[in-house]
């Protein structure tokens, strides 16, 4: 972390969900941990999110969803990541995601699901381990 380029992370709020307390907490925690973090703000379409990930050349994409609509959103994002040649991005999903959906999310290419209540340090450690 002390040498070279900082890891760039995009934290995004897809869909219409307005609950951004968690996303903003994660943004602060990642910034505090030394990452370069971009936050999209609310209500971004999968297209907007993937375009931003592309334009900003991020190596980590974190989605925050609490409305329950994570499955249709992630299915769409998977296709878009593929189209943009970003399938190898480290893809994280956080929020209110029931256990029963974790396997399907993983099969779409999601690298980790951080449910509500996950300590921010766990996310920081995971990203550090996977992006080196």
């Amino acid at each position: 972390m002390n040498s070279g380029k900082k890891t760039r992370i995009l934290v995004a709020k897809p869909g219409l969900d307005g609950h951004d307390v968690g996303a903003k907490i994660v943004v602060r925690a990642l910034m505090e941990a030394g990452f370069d973090v971009i936050y999209t703000g609310l209500r971004k379409s999968p297209e907007q999110i993937v375009r931003t990930a592309c334009d900003e050349d991020v190596s980590v994409l974190g989605l925050s969803v609490l409305s329950g609509s994570h499955m249709p959103i992630c299915r769409r994002i998977k296709d878009l990541l593929h189209e943009h040649g970003l399938s190898d991005i480290l893809w994280l999903v956080g929020g209110n995601v029931p256990q029963k959906d974790h396997d399907e999310l993983k099969s779409l290419g999601v690298d980790a699901v951080f449910a509500v209540g996950t300590p921010t340090q766990v996310m920081v450690d995971f990203i550090r381990e996977r992006v080196s």
Partner: peptide
């Protein structure tokens, strides 16, 4: 948004 809006996909009747 109306329920048939493209931005409403996956959100209709959910919360």
């Amino acid at each position: 948004l109306n329920s048939d809006d493209v931005l409403a996909q996956g959100e209709v009747g959910r919360v």
